[in-house]
């Protein structure tokens, strides 16, 4: 794993982008604290280190586009809705939960956002949504997030095959964080994701770094092309996973984790734009703390037969 890559210049972020990045970061950190203190049970998967992916993509998708998320999807949700309360309430099973406490961390649905907990399953689903969009709402697209580990699932290939054959407006965002739960990418993935996309005649874009403004600039054209000339597109983000797969299950060396931290957008933006960063960081830290206090105080969601009948 290459970890010594240093970015020298990082574009000044828009305040909104910085706020969104930090909202996600502090949400995830707060979540881990709540777990540690026993206020949250069950499981969750944080996106620490990968927050910039949905933030960079945010202005490139509109409300009529479908976003399909995966198990590591809090950042995707927050980037789309900017609403940490409904998400935290969902994870804590408290009133105001976006899915009434049934879906939890991995199964979220709101408007045209949907996440599921089974690896790779969402790619055929996104292909189906893309097929419907192509027929009913030309110009819209379906975007689906998967990780590097999801490439072990056969359903992905069935979906890529159909998406390419039928020229569907499908954007496959691969967040390659170099590790699938505990297995490094090199040990679970033969060949390359580029090669696999090309095998289906699908364009592949490789994205490195965490400069949201630069990434967005680079992706604007290809994303627009998916809308105007429908064809699937694979965008592979080379990212890092700073946190554990779930909670407290990280078996990586401390040295490796320290090196990864050097690549974290958090440190970079902080070094490059300290004043802007400090203000935003304070705002979002406070927001996360307030959110946690407020949601924790809410009553538990009540069972609702009408919403989960039988």
């Amino acid at each position: 794993m290459t970890v010594q890559r240093i970015e020298t210049a990082v574009t000044r972020p828009a305040d909104a982008d910085l706020d969104l990045l930090l909202m996600t970061r502090h949400f995830e950190l707060t979540l881990l604290r709540l777990f540690e203190s026993g206020l949250i049970g069950g499981t969750t998967h944080t996106c620490l280190g990968q927050e910039h992916v949905p933030v960079a993509l945010r202005p490139l998708i509109d409300d009529a586009d479908h976003v399909f998320s995966n198990h590591r999807g809090h950042g995707h949700y927050l980037a789309r809705f900017g609403d940490p309360h409904s998400l935290l309430a969902e994870i804590m099973g408290r009133e105001g939960a976006v899915c009434h406490g049934i879906g939890g961390s991995q199964h979220l649905r709101r408007d045209r956002f949907l996440s599921t907990g089974v690896q790779g399953q969402n790619v055929p689903v996104a292909a189906g949504a893309a097929l419907a969009l192509k027929r009913r709402e030309p110009g819209q697209l379906a975007l689906v997030h998967i990780g590097d580990g999801s490439w072990g699932e056969g359903a992905i290939y069935e979906a890529l095959n159909m998406a390419s054959l039928w020229r569907l407006p499908l954007v496959l965002v691969v967040e390659n964080n170099g590790i699938a739960q505990s297995t490094p990418t090199a040990e679970h993935l033969a060949g390359s994701i580029t090669g696999r996309a090309h095998a289906f005649g699908i364009d592949h874009i490789s994205v490195r770094g965490t400069d949201v403004t630069a990434i967005r600039k680079r992706l604007r054209q290809p994303m627009m092309r998916v809308r105007t000339h429908p064809r699937p597109l694979v965008i592979e983000f080379e990212t890092i996973r700073l946190g554990p797969h779930s909670k407290g299950d990280d078996t990586r060396d401390a040295a490796v984790l320290r090196a990864l931290k050097e690549q974290d957008w958090y440190a970079r933006y902080e070094r490059a734009y300290p004043e802007q960063f400090a203000a935003a960081d304070r705002r979002q830290r406070d927001l996360a703390e307030r959110c946690a206090r407020e949601v924790t105080a809410r009553p538990l969601v009540r069972r609702n037969e009408g919403e989960n009948p039988r």
Binding site: H66, L114, Q121, V123, P124, V125, A126, A127, G128, A129, A130, L131, A132, L133, R136, A142, G154, A155, E158, A159, N161, M162, L165, W166
Partner: peptide, 23 residues
């Protein structure tokens, strides 16, 4: 009518995406 490749998991998943879109 969509004649598909031999992909049972894929086409049922695809149907799920269509159904979620109101089809």
């Amino acid at each position: 009518v969509v004649s598909t490749p031999i992909s049972e998991a894929g086409i049922v998943g695809l149907a799920g995406g269509l159904a979620l879109s109101g089809e």
